[in-house]
Design a protein around this nucleic acid. Sequence first.
DNA 1: TCTTGACTTGGAGTTCACTCCAGGTGGTAG
DNA 2: CTACCACCTGGAGTGAACTCCAAGTCAAGA
Lengths: 126, 126
Amino acid sequence: MRMAEVSAKFELSQDTLRYYERIGLIPPVNRNNNGIREYNEDNLRWVEFIKCMRSAGLPIEALIEYVNLFQQGDCTLSARKDLLIEQREQLRLRIEEMVQTMGRLDSKIENYGQSLHETEKALSRS
Amino acid sequence: MRMAEVSAKFELSQDTLRYYERIGLIPPVNRNNNGIREYNEDNLRWVEFIKCMRSAGLPIEALIEYVNLFQQGDCTLSARKDLLIEQREQLRLRIEEMVQTMGRLDSKIENYGQSLHETEKALSRS
DNA sequence: TCTTGACTTGGAGTTCACTCCAGGTGGTAG
DNA sequence: CTACCACCTGGAGTGAACTCCAAGTCAAGA
C-alpha cells in the first residue's frame, strides 16, 4: 500500500507519516526499487498502533523508545513490558484526573440548570 | 494575595498567570494603586478552575469564550451552560477513547506476560 | 516524446502555549 | 541616600509536533 492510501486510511497526512518514520515513531517502511514506500501489514499495524497511542496522549519519547526496543528483538521483551506498564499507569492517572474534572463539570452544569430553573420560575410568574 | 504566592499555590509560573490574564483565560485581576495585582477569592477560584480545566485538556478557545460570557453577566447563563455541556461531552469522548486504549495496553501487557512465561519455561527446561 | 502525477528528499516555516528578557517603577531595609 | 526586591510592560524567544516547500525521480498515458 502506498502513502496516499495509508494517509487516507488513518487520516494522517503524508508529511506526518514521513515525519513519524523519520523520528523513529514507526519502524522503517519497506521501499520498492524506486525508493517508494510500500506499506505491508506490519507497517500498517504500527501506524495504527502509534496513532492510537498518540491520541491517548502517550509521549512520543516513550513510543520511540518502545519502537527501538522492538527493533532490538526478543532480548528486550521485559523492557518493553515494563515500558508499557509504566505508560499504562500514567494513562490511568490521566483518566482518573479527567473523570474528576468531568464530575466537576457535571456539578457546574447542574448548578446552571438550577439557575435556569429560577429564571423559568421568574418567567412563569411574570 | 500577590503573584508570587498565587504562583506557588497553584504551581503556575508568574509568566503563565500574566499570560492567562492577557489572553482572557482568567478575568482581569484587581490592582492596587501601584498597578500590582492583588488576587482576591474570586480571582483565586478562577485560576484554580482554569488550571483544572486545562489539565483535563479543555481547549483554551472554549475557556476564553466561557470567561467572556461570564463577564457579560446573567444574560449569558444559558450560553455558558451550553458551552459546558458541549465541553463535558468532548471530555467524555476523550475519556472513552483513553479507556479503550488502556484496555488495549492491558492486553499487550498480558501478552508480554505470556511471552515471559514462555521464556521462563524455556529457562526452567534448561 | 512529452506531460502528468504520485512519490522522494532535506530543510525551512508555522502554530500553540508558554517562557524569557530588557528596561522601568515603587516600597522597604540598612 | 542607596540598594534591593517584587512587581510591571511589551515584545522576543523556545520546544514540540507537525506542515510546507523546492527540486528531483520515475512510470504510465496521449
